[in-house]
Amino acid sequence: MATLVAGRDREDVAAVFGVSLKAVDGWWAKWQAGRSGALVIRPRGKPVGVH
């Protein structure tokens, strides 16, 4: 969450990433807990070919 660390506010971060303030708060809590690995982008939805 380098942007919050750099002094940007929650609203700016939410606008940049197109997410809710609740999502930003969750990311920030994980970052402060030292779990930056939890912020890694993971695939969403069903795997390709699964219906």
Rank of each mutant, 00 (worst) to 15 (best):
P43D: 09
G37R: 09
G49I: 06
T3R: 04
A15Y: 06
V19D: 04
Q32T: 14
G49T: 05
R8T: 02
V5Y: 10
G49P: 03
M1K: 03
R10G: 08
G26V: 02
V5S: 09
D12T: 14
L21Q: 08
G34I: 11
S20C: 09
G45H: 02
I41D: 07
A33K: 12
I41A: 13
W31C: 03
G49L: 07
P47G: 05
V13W: 00
G34Y: 07
L39V: 08
V19K: 06
A6I: 08
G37Y: 03
A23M: 11
S36I: 11
F17H: 14
A14K: 01
L4W: 02
D9Y: 10
R35I: 00
A29P: 01
I41C: 04
R35E: 13
A23H: 02
G45I: 03
L39Q: 08
V50Q: 12
A33F: 06
K30L: 15
P43V: 06
E11W: 07
R8W: 12
M1I: 11
G7R: 05
D12S: 15
A14Y: 02
S36Q: 09
K30P: 00
S36F: 08
K30S: 15
V24F: 02
D25Q: 15
G34P: 02
G18A: 11
V16G: 01
R10Q: 14
T3E: 10
V50N: 04
A23K: 02
V40M: 09
G7A: 10
A33I: 06
L21I: 15
L4D: 00
A2F: 07
G49M: 06
V50E: 14
V40T: 09
A38S: 08
G45L: 02
D12N: 04
L39W: 08
A6V: 07
P47I: 01
I41L: 11
W31M: 08
A2Q: 11
G49Q: 09
V40C: 09
V16E: 12
G49C: 07
I41R: 12
I41F: 08
A38L: 13
L4H: 03
G37Q: 09
D12Q: 14
L39R: 06
V48Y: 07
G7M: 10
G18N: 13
W27C: 01
G37E: 15
P43I: 03
R10E: 12
P47W: 01
G45R: 02
G49F: 08
F17L: 15
W28F: 12
L21V: 12
S36D: 11
F17M: 11
V50P: 00
I41V: 09
